[in-house]
Amino acid sequence: MFRPVTGPTLWLYILGALAASGVIFFVLQAIPSRLRKPLVALITFVAGLYYATEFFWPVGADGANFLTPWIDPLAQMTQVLQAFALGLGVYSLASVHLRAVARQRSGWGFSVVLFAGLFAIALTGFLREYRPNRFNENVFNFFFVGGLQSLDATMFSIIAFYIVSAAYRAFRVRSIEATILLTSAFVVMLGQVALGQALTNNIPNQQFAANFRVENIANWILTRVNSPALLAVDFGLGIGGLATALRLWLSLERGSYFDKEL
């Protein structure tokens, strides 16, 4: 039954699949309310059970078990399903800004700019794809390279200003923890710039004296203090993540979203 089909019959099969989906939809909407939550819990468990079983089940000489061939198709399916969700975001954006334009709220002109940018790059992208020529390529590049990429690069570079103001504020806090943080940051920064390295350049880079060169101190902080501390944080996060995954898988998670009656 699950074999590729070609020709006009393909569309019959596709329509048949959609019709079958309709039947499934009607069956689902007939499910009584008290069975909905157990159904969601069952689907969550079965979905997780696949990956858990695939991981734990012994493998053959080829490094695969009977579930392994399904990993790639499932990953593909997940990507496709998530791609369908983009429409939700576009709808959300469009509804907010269309309402602003329709009611001529303050700043509605900016919503027009938003739509102009959206349609301009989407349209030129599709034209570039389906009618490739230099004209379409150049227009697309104008919006992508000249617009989108430069806006990205600008926002990224703006962080430099914010880092300085954040460091200044942290310096004003005057607590032990802020002092430790800034001292460590200062030493590491010094160790990475030529000016900082020049301060201890006349200390020989041999034997015990080498311990007092600023780049060696910075390197020691990064490798001997930073690494084990982050390792420990990572362990805690890993265990916390595993516990959360277990609660989710077994539908033990609590919160207003999970406790809601369906």
């Binding site: 954006l93 919503s111 700019v113 940018g117 790059i121 794809e129 992508f144 617009g147 806006l151």
Partner: peptide, 14 residues
């Protein structure tokens, strides 16, 4: 800002 969001969303659609 609005141009950025519009371009980003349009590019995401494409």
């Amino acid at each position: 800002e609005h141009l950025f969001i519009g371009l980003a969303t349009g590019y995401a659609v494409y």
